[in-house]
Design a protein around this nucleic acid. Sequence first.
DNA 1: GTCTATATTGTGATAGAC
DNA 2: GTCTATCACAATATAGAC
Lengths: 205, 205
Amino acid sequence: MVKIKEIEKSTEIKILEAAKQEFLERGFDGARMQKIAERAGINKALLHYYFRSKENLFKAIFQSVFENFFPKVVKTFQSEISFFDKLKFFIDNYIDVLSKNPFLPAFILHEIQLRPEMLINSMKEQGFNPSVFLNMFKREMENGVICNMRVEHLVVNILSMCIFPVAAAPIIKGMIFKNDDIEYQQFLEERKIIVYEFVVNSIKK
Amino acid sequence: MVKIKEIEKSTEIKILEAAKQEFLERGFDGARMQKIAERAGINKALLHYYFRSKENLFKAIFQSVFENFFPKVVKTFQSEISFFDKLKFFIDNYIDVLSKNPFLPAFILHEIQLRPEMLINSMKEQGFNPSVFLNMFKREMENGVICNMRVEHLVVNILSMCIFPVAAAPIIKGMIFKNDDIEYQQFLEERKIIVYEFVVNSIKK
DNA sequence: GTCTATATTGTGATAGAC
DNA sequence: GTCTATCACAATATAGAC
C-alpha cells in the first residue's frame, strides 16, 4: 500500500502548498487561481480537476490553517509542570509558530470579518474548545496562585500580546525598525520573555 | 465662499463615505465599484468621473482612515495631568474609537501586508511620528515613575491589548459570547479598566 | 455633473484531446 | 491525470448623449 516513489510530491500536496501560500498572502479575494497553478508548477485546469472550485480549495486551506491560529495546547496544559512553567511554555511556542507563519494572523483576522460561519465550521471540524484554556486559569485563581480577575480578559490579553505584533509586523518594522527584518525578528524573540514577565507581574499575588 | 445648501451632501462626500464603508468591510480586492455606487446612490460612471480609478479612490480612503488606527495623541500627552492619567485617558479613548469602527483594525492589518508602501505614504502625508509616544514612556522611566524596560515592548503591549480584541471580534464573540453583540460590547467596555490596571500592575515600581 | 450604453480586460470554470 | 483552448461572466473603465 505504501507508495514507492516519495521523491516527487503528489500533485495534490503541491496544490495545497501553493494555495496555502497564495491565500495566506493575498486573502480569498486577492488570490488568483492562475498564480496558485504557477506556484504549484501545473496549470489552472488541474486545480479544478482536484478541487472543482476556488471556494472548495479555500475551505480546505482555511481549516488546516485555522488550527495554528489558536494552537492546540491541551497536552501542554495537562502536564505536571507548574502553572507558570506552562504559561512560559505556551507563550514561547506560540510566538515561535507565528514568527514562522507571518501572514497567518492578518489572514485569519481579515477572512473572519465577512465569513464568521467559517470560524464555526472550523471549530466544530477540529473539536476546538476554548474553555480548556479558560478553565486552567480559573483553577489557578481558585487555588490562590494568581489574583482574581475575569479570565476572559486575561486570556485575551495574553493572546493579544502574542498575535498582534505579528499581524502588525509591517507597521512595526516600518515605524520602529526602519524595515530591518533582523532587528524585528530579534524583537519578537525578546517578546517571549517580555510578555511572560509582563503577564506574571500583573497577575501574581 | 461658503456654500448655501448644506442639506444635501455633495456627491464627492457621498462617494467617499460609501467607499469607506465598502473598503473597510471587504478590503481593496473584495470591494466592488458597483457596490460603492449603490451605497452612494449614484452610478458607476460617476465614480470614475470623480476619482478616475478604483486604486485612486482607495488611496484617498486609506489615508483618511489610517490616522484612526494610530490615534493622534500628541495633544493628550503634552497636557499637564499625571502620567497615569494620560495612560488611562489614552486607553479609554482608543478603545472607544475602535469599538465605533469595528472593521478598522482588521482592514489596516490586512492591507498593510502586501502594500507596506501605503503605510510609508500615509505616515509622511500626516506627519505621523511614533517617537512622541515612545518618548513619553522613556521620560517616566528616567524619572523613576515606572520600572525600566524597552519602551517598544511596553507600547506594543498596550496597543496589542487595545487593538487585537476588536480585530478578533468575530472570533471572541463566537467562542466566548455565543455571538451576543451586547455581551461583547460590554466586554470591550470593561477592558478600558482592565487594560489600564493590567499595564499599571506590570510597570509600576 | 450625471446618466446609459459599451468597450476591455481579468478570472473562474469547462470541453475535449492525449 | 494532465494539458491546450475556450467559454461565460464579472468588474473596471470609457464614450458620448443630455
